[in-house]
Write a protein that binds this DNA or RNA. Structure first.
Lengths: 213, 213
DNA sequence: TAGTGCCGTGTACAACGTACACCTGGTGTA
DNA sequence: TACACCAGGTGTACGTTGTACACGGCACTA
């Protein structure tokens, strides 16, 4: 995890891990069936580092849960480039999920609704996390972050801006991209507002059941 | 893209592409600098397949935008396992984004707010898409989907359910996992509700500017 | 004392992206 | 007509990856 945090998950090879531990590469396979299982363990270990969501007002609890996830993703961006090869969350992630369920359990929601509420929050955090992780990776790989990047952007800009992207040019010219709102803060507040509206509605809107897959 | 859709992005090797086109592997490098640029092109081509977001009531427009993204991700789940090596969206994605900006542009929002609103929706769709993509990948790789999977799940369940996961067991026992709500439909409605609340508020809540990175 | 696992080692292989040197046929210019 | 040029296709080769497989030593038990 130390390597993945610092140099990205691509730098995390079995040989590298072994070298760092002072053993040979193949010795690792005495303790772990393969690399993907090892990555699964890393992911669950990261979940284990987060704090347990406390009981309390449900909106605060959900917000806490989201912020913990966000902190986790910021500390370990590699989590978002991994496909969770197993289909179920690991035990640590399960524990955290359970606590999040508990927070919304006193609202009299149907069980599917409890799941849906927590899932909606997770999906949002996953989404922000992903673009954050991509940004981190791109910065590490290309080295430079601002000086070179924005200059090339400028030239690109002139290339296809004219009238094919009217709104973008307008936003660009009025500085909307220069001082953006915090994507996580803004989105989280909206998602939670939307959930409040759902929970407080006298008759809750029906939602389609999941089609298979 | 045909290969990636059907067999996953891991099956998409340069040799495979060349073979499919009837040329040798290295001939591809006459047309594309490297694989990652080719993947960038694929991603942007997928954006090009979606329909242009029409003008109209802003909530409908945003919903349309989200549904188009969702359809795109369902058709091309591999898009979500790729790290967009370049930092800017391609021209097709740009065009779609521009149309989405246009939809919310008549609300008198500040430019940063326009960006934030569209970004929030995208992040949510990204998040749902990601877990969907993982599920698709897992099903392809492990072959079986239900019969074997749920049986192993059952045994796992007995293992650590007792009292460490009270809410999960409760939800499990009351069938909350068996007939889940559609994650996309549910979440999208909440996110849009939250955005409506934001837009209609007399004084819009301040949001922290993005801290760098 | 012989047997039985656990744990670490070393070599080897297939698959990947791609660098590099080479060939080849069509086109533009003298 | 001659010739240079070069976009586009070919073939071989290299380094890196995950990991299969055969092997060696150690501790412990019957």
């Amino acid at each position: 995890m130390k390597v993945a945090d610092a140099e990205g998950v691509d730098a995390l090879t079995m040989r590298r891990i072994a070298e760092m531990l002072g053993f040979t590469t193949m010795s690792l396979y005495r303790h772990v069936p393969g690399k993907s299982e090892l990555l699964d363990l890393m992911v669950d270990a990261a979940w284990g580092e987060t704090e347990h969501t406390p009981k309390g007002p449900w909106r605060d609890g959900l917000e806490f849960f989201a912020r913990q996830m966000w902190a986790m993703y910021r500390a370990h961006p590699w989590m978002l480039q991994l496909t969770t090869s197993r289909r179920m969350p690991g035990p640590q992630a399960m524990t955290r999920l359970d606590a999040a369920f508990a927070v919304v359990s006193e609202l009299g929601l149907a069980p599917e609704e409890i799941v849906a509420v927590v899932t909606a929050v997770s999906h949002f955090v996953d989404g922000v996390g992903r673009t954050m992780a991509d940004r981190v990776k791109a910065e590490r790989e290309t080295g430079v972050s601002d000086e070179e990047w924005w200059s090339t952007t400028d030239s690109l800009w002139e290339h296809f801006t004219p009238d094919r992207l009217p709104m973008m040019t307008h936003i660009w010219n009025t500085g909307g991209f220069e001082r953006p709102l915090d994507e996580f803060e803004f989105g989280l507040a909206r998602v939670l507002d939307g959930l409040v509206a759902f929970v407080e509605a006298e008759e809750r809107p029906a939602v389609r059941r999941s089609t298979c897959l």
